[in-house]
């Protein structure tokens, strides 16, 4: 009895020490994980700040005209971003026009038509397409797609449209093979898996009761898709498209191979052009002079701002559909 009482304070103090040690290590671990989470925020902030600092010289030299000038002349050191911005937007827009119908079509095929045993393999193949590095698409575009377009498709299109006003300037010029349209096609292949897999995922969120009741009153598969599935998942599809748009705008290597790197704005889709990312990739290591480098970083800043906005909207839309299915 007394021996136990004598031992109690020692036991208590050692227990207290253990609890204190646990509390301390837990606090350290908590703080470490928190710091890592904050580091993610710091990274994005650091990207914004460093791009802004790096482009300050160009922005202060050219001011607002940097955005509106088409000239890009390393010799006279006159730089304007209009041609790369134009190329970026046109290639991405055409890519979206090609990829969205295809992607939604594949998603409908996978969710409504595909025989069950084939669903997983085909879905997986589409996702593997997303994992292929962009440089592979680039090298394929340069050596396989561009020569094919140059020798067969483009001469045909030019000969068909050359008498039609409006369209003849859209498809004008010698068939180079490389250029805006080729880049857009490569981009379309690259973003197709993103659009497909997101669309498929949001299609799967449609409650079967909704679809079954539509089938129950005699709707065809297409009517169910058009009137029930697509309206229900509209926000999710839009989010997926925006996400794909963000990818397309920032895609570098695949485009760099096939865009032709020409700093001019041309109405013809067959003309060589340039995009923001292709300009940076092609010229950054060769840029001599601070102003040249700074102008390239300024291009990067423009790309960063555009993609940040697009991706933020995309995530917001996808979050809304997540919240709905979670509720």
């Amino acid at each position: 009895m007394s021996a136990v009482q004598e031992a109690l304070p020692a036991v208590r103090s050692s227990r207290d020490a253990t609890v204190r040690r646990f509390a301390l290590t837990d606090a350290i671990f908590h703080a470490t994980t928190r710091a890592a989470a904050i580091l993610v925020l710091v990274l994005l902030g650091g990207v914004a700040i460093s791009l802004f600092a790096g482009s300050w010289q160009a922005l202060s030299t050219f001011g607002f005209s940097f955005l509106t000038s088409e000239s890009w002349n390393p010799v006279t050191e006159k730089f304007g971003a209009l041609a790369p911005i134009y190329g970026t937007i046109i290639t991405s827009a055409i890519a979206i026009l090609i990829a969205v119908p295809l992607g939604i079509g594949i998603a409908i095929f996978l969710t409504e038509l595909c025989p069950r045993p084939l669903r997983r393999p085909i879905g997986m193949a589409v996702e593997l397409l997303a994992g292929i590095p962009s440089i592979i698409y680039g090298i394929w575009g340069l050596f396989v797609l561009a020569p094919f377009l140059q020798t067969t498709v483009q001469p045909f299109i030019i000969s068909v449209f050359h008498g039609i006003p409006g369209l003849n300037s859209l498809f004008a010029g010698p068939p180079y093979g490389i250029g805006l349209l080729t880049s857009a096609m490569i981009l379309a292949i690259m973003i197709l898996p993103f659009i497909t897999s997101i669309t498929k995922d949001v299609f799967d969120t449609v409650p079967s009761v909704l679809k079954e009741s539509a089938y129950g009153i005699g709707c065809t598969t297409w009517e169910v898709t058009r009137r029930v599935v697509i309206p229900y998942t509209r926000i999710g599809i839009m989010g997926g498209v925006m996400l794909a748009l963000g990818r397309a705008l920032g895609e570098t290597m695949a485009v760099t191979f096939v865009i032709g790197n020409a700093h001019r704005i041309s109405t013809s889709l067959f003309a060589p052009a340039t995009t923001i990312s292709a300009t940076i990739a092609n010229e950054f290591t060769e840029a001599v002079g601070d102003l040249y480098t700074s102008s390239l970083v300024a291009l990067g800043l423009i790309l960063f701002v555009i993609t940040f906005l697009i991706l933020a909207i995309a995530r917001y839309m996808l979050m809304r559909i997540d919240a709905r299915t979670g509720a």
Partner: peptide, 28 residues
């Protein structure tokens, strides 16, 4: 709240153009 913000920013970093990261490290 921090988690919500980090998740949002992380998703943006996930699909941010990788050439931008290259520029960042060049400056850094």
């Amino acid at each position: 709240k921090l988690t919500t913000v980090v998740r949002f920013i992380n998703d943006i970093l996930l699909s941010a153009p990788s050439i931008i990261i290259g520029l960042f490290v060049y400056e850094l």
